[in-house]
């Protein structure tokens, strides 16, 4: 069963999710990658409020068509690169949803638990499918400073499908799979 969640992503909504749940995400999300995370972590001012908001680890392909921004491709990027910054940003900005791929580390897992945030994994590389879930672009920040890929794009989504892989109860599916597969690896190396 798919659970639909819509912006604003209040703590009540995020605390109701568990690892393994499939969710369909709608409403406002902002993209952010390496440059933005580092900028914000070093004390830069966030141009929009991310309280009860969602951060999408994504560098989209965006074209200007007829005076409007159109997103042509928008799959997730590897989230673990933002691990040094994520926990602090969850706390300071009031983020409730992170969307990306590959999962995140211990600091983020604990920050999710302590501040009612969830991490959603979506299909890496599925850029066309995910771009089709973007209804419109509401704005862009740092376009000149960071370039198109690293800019902060304000997107309005309709039904982006993802799986909860880190929940607000401290569970991480990434950690579980890593432990299970470590056992399998040890068996294979023992042969």
């Amino acid at each position: 069963m798919i659970k639909a969640i819509e912006y604003p992503f209040t703590e009540e909504k995020t605390r109701g999710l568990r690892v393994g749940d499939t969710v369909s995400l709608s409403g406002r999300v902002c993209t952010g990658r390496d440059r933005l995370h580092q900028f914000l972590a070093e004390g830069g001012t966030c141009p929009v409020s991310l309280r009860d908001g969602a951060m999408y680890h994504c560098g989209p392909v965006v074209m200007q068509e007829g005076g409007k921004w159109v997103v042509r491709a928008a799959g997730p990027t590897t989230s673990i690169r933002e691990e040094p910054y994520m926990a602090d940003l969850i706390k300071s900005l009031g983020l409730r949803v992170i969307v990306g791929k590959g999962g995140m580390g211990e600091a983020t897992r604990l920050a999710c638990r302590d501040h009612g945030c969830v991490y959603l994994q979506t299909v890496g590389g599925a850029a066309a499918l995910l771009a089709a879930c973007i209804e419109r672009v509401d704005g862009v920040h740092f376009l000149a400073e960071f370039g198109s890929t690293e800019a902060m794009w304000e997107l309005h989504l309709r039904d982006l499908i993802a799986v909860v892989t880190m929940d607000a109860r401290g569970h991480s599916l990434h950690r579980t799979v890593q432990r299970k597969t470590r056992k399998a690896l040890n068996e294979l190396l023992g042969e």
């Binding site: 799959g75 590389g125 599925a126 850029a127 066309a128």
Partner: peptide
């Protein structure tokens, strides 16, 4: 979803993955 994405990218002539 990967297969759907491949079909959509081919049909609409858009990048399969945004990281080209």
């Amino acid at each position: 979803m990967m297969l759907e994405n491949a079909a959509m990218a081919r049909r609409d002539s858009v990048p399969l993955c945004q990281d080209t």
